[in-house]
């Protein structure tokens, strides 16, 4: 089976700092890939490089076999890859429905069709009762769900989720986990950044570990937990 996303020797430098250095891996369609690592490891930077927020300093990125290195984020999104933001970015003065419609308008010019798509995605995340709330007034848990509905409305084949459980209580996190598994069941490939180890071990098919911008390890959750290097660099501190 051919990879849906492939990174070849991707590096990103900020001045002298190598936020990502020489990272290569591939993603199988339909799978969930966990991306973990300590704070400042370069996880968000990698998402930014993949989605075109800024071009990588070196290396190449392929999506569905096409090179997308340096492509603008709007083009990447229209090709079928969407991302959420670690620090959520609701369109604060617009309603919940309008926020999701903006995502849906990526696939249609018709407001009526966009409204239908948006309503559908809002019911997927369980926010169909909140359509006319102003996005800026939502609590964090619902902002995260709104962000999920909005990217789902762009009809992605690959979703990059940046700490969608960050700042949520256990019940809310559980809801998000269920949502991620539901998205997987619909055949959408996902890459998930997460600090909650229990959650990431449970949902991931494979995990990539970053440390100081470098890829430290890759494998199944069981392999990662058993990897001494990973335990020393990252897991050790969270268990200590």
């Amino acid at each position: 089976m051919s990879a849906i996303l492939e990174l070849k020797h991707v590096s990103k430098f900020f001045g002298g700092l190598a936020a990502n250095s020489d990272i290569s891996f591939a993603m199988e369609p339909g799978m969930i890939k966990g991306l973990i690592g300590p704070n400042g490891a370069g996880k968000t930077t990698l998402f930014n490089c993949i989605t075109g927020y800024y071009p990588p300093s070196r290396g190449e990125i392929f999506f569905k076999g096409h090179p997308i290195t340096g492509l603008q984020p709007d083009r990447v999104c229209r090709l079928g890859m969407a991302r959420t933001w670690q620090k959520v970015r609701p369109l604060v003065k617009m309603t919940v429905l309008d926020n999701v419609m903006v995502g849906a308008l990526c696939r249609t010019n018709s407001l009526a069709k966009a409204r239908n798509i948006a309503m559908e995605q809002l019911s997927v995340v369980g926010m169909e009762q909140k359509t006319h709330f102003i996005a800026g007034g939502l609590p964090i848990g619902e902002r995260k769900k709104l962000e999920m509905a909005r990217v789902l409305a762009t009809k992605p084949e690959l979703l990059l989720l940046d700490e969608v459980m960050g700042g949520l209580n256990p019940a809310e996190s559980e809801e998000i986990i269920r949502l991620i598994l539901e998205i997987k069941a619909r055949g959408i490939t996902q890459m998930v950044i997460e600090h909650d180890m229990k959650a990431i071990m449970r949902i991931s098919d494979r995990i990539v570990v970053l440390n100081s911008g470098e890829k430290l390890a890759e494998g199944t959750p069981a392999e990662i937990v058993a990897n001494q290097e990973v335990v020393d660099a990252y897991l050790g501190e969270s268990h200590a």
């Binding site: 709007d74 999104c77 229209r78 969407a82 970015r89 369109l91 604060v92 617009m94 990526c106």
Partner: peptide
């Protein structure tokens, strides 16, 4: 509302 968010939504 947010140019970067809009950009990432196509």
């Amino acid at each position: 509302e947010d140019q970067d968010a809009a950009h990432s939504l196509g």
